[in-house]
Simulated scan of single mutants.
Amino acid sequence: MRAVLVDSPGGPESMRVGEVDTPTPGPGEVLVKTVASGVNRADVLQRQGHYPPPRGTTDIIGLEASGVVAAVGDGVDQWREGDEVVALLAGGGYAEYFVAPAGQLIAPPSSVDLVTAGGLLEVAATVVSNLDVAGLAAGEVFLVHGGAGGIGTFAIQYAKALGATVITTAGTAEKVRHCLDHGADHAIDYHDDWPAAVAEATGGKGADVILDIMGAKYLEANVKSLARRGRMVVIGLQGGVKGTLNLGLLLAKQGTITATSLRFRPAAEKAAICSRVAETVWPLIDAGTIAVSPETRFPFAEVQAAHTHLVGGDNVGKIVLVH
């Protein structure tokens, strides 16, 4: 089968499409013929050598994909050959076929085509699971960074569906407008003094929940922007891994900082998250309450161009590879 291979860590040029053996589903697993693969920031980190897959997982990049069931392993009775599915993966999505535990497959939303669905599950699972961890409730203030990306676009709408007031940051006037068009109450250019803008927007109260993709670069500013008993969840490290934390300020605010990784969770937890997405998010998409992110499609063979576009700074919404 065709798969994206990385001969040595590096830039987009380090990836190539080559031939590897088609995987075989083991007990409790499903083999899927890929229709589309979602492209995520984590894929860039893995390609650069900074985010290796869990032990025992294929080193083929790709944390989500859609496709059609090609075969099932022993003990799988909820899926049959020909079923359309989307998958949450620990790796392997950039390939003509992939194998996944049966519990990490769900049917796509009925209102979305299978290519678009290939870029939905990782985003939805990330946001839903982490806002569950943070306990975001109606009437609270939610701050998400990178509001024009795939995660940000979804998080804005999901938080609004929960009844929160949403603040987000973005890097250009176009991206700020995108965030407002997708329901953000306040969208701030991060080149400005965004902590001051958050304070102004909340009357000095701050954000009850912050979903952070930046890590070290925003650590101090995020703590400053927390409300009393605020909760911050770190899900990305685009701004570095080591920062300075004012524990006195965190203590005074009685704040909480949590860091999570969806990729390294046990299979049972991932299956539960996938079920929750199917039960709570897909109906919101089918009803039009959550609009699918703007999407840029690249042919599978143009994976280098897809990664170049993602890191170039102009991308809005989601990128998918079409097989």
Rank of each mutant, 00 (worst) to 15 (best):
Q48Y: 07
Q48A: 15
G103W: 00
L245P: 04
E81W: 09
R265F: 12
Q78W: 04
T22C: 08
L219R: 02
C274V: 15
P9L: 11
V198Y: 03
G147Q: 03
A278V: 15
Q46S: 02
L247H: 13
A159I: 06
F98L: 14
R228C: 04
V72S: 00
G92I: 07
A36E: 01
R80Y: 10
R41E: 08
T256F: 09
P101G: 08
S275N: 14
V85A: 11
A71C: 07
H178M: 10
E122D: 13
G183T: 07
L226H: 03
A107W: 00
E295I: 12
I60N: 01
S261A: 15
A134H: 00
S37L: 13
A173Q: 11
R231D: 02
A148R: 00
C179R: 03
C179M: 07
G91E: 02
A90K: 12
L143T: 04
A3S: 09
I151A: 01
N315M: 13
P195V: 15
Q78I: 11
V144F: 10
L5K: 15
H323V: 06
V99A: 05
Q238W: 06
G73F: 05
G10Q: 10
E220I: 02
N246V: 04
I290N: 01
G10L: 14
L120M: 15
R263W: 08
P283K: 07
A301W: 06
F300E: 02
L237M: 09
T126N: 03
F300R: 04
D77C: 05
Y218L: 10
L131S: 04
I235W: 01
L219K: 04
A70Y: 03
A134P: 03
A65F: 06
V85K: 01
V4K: 02
E200N: 13
L211W: 00
E29W: 01
A287D: 07
V6T: 12
V72T: 08
A267H: 03
D59A: 15
G49M: 11
S66Y: 04
S225G: 07
P12E: 07
Q157Y: 05
G91R: 01
L237Q: 06
E64S: 08
A216V: 06
K160H: 06
A138H: 15
K224T: 14
Y94H: 05
A170L: 09
A102Q: 05
V123C: 11
T308Y: 09
T244W: 10
G183K: 09
A170S: 15
V166F: 06
G230M: 04
P23E: 08
A71T: 10
T165G: 04
G92R: 01
V99M: 08
I235D: 00
H323A: 09
T289G: 10
D83E: 14
T58K: 07
T116I: 13
V112C: 12
G150K: 03
T153C: 05
R297N: 09
D314I: 13
R297L: 14
G230L: 05
A117T: 08
G135R: 11
G152W: 01
G49K: 11
I60L: 13
L5G: 09
V115Y: 06
A170N: 08
P101V: 07
V85F: 04
G248P: 06
G91D: 03
Q254E: 13
T280Q: 12
K253E: 03
N246Q: 05
S111H: 03
L121Y: 02
G240C: 14
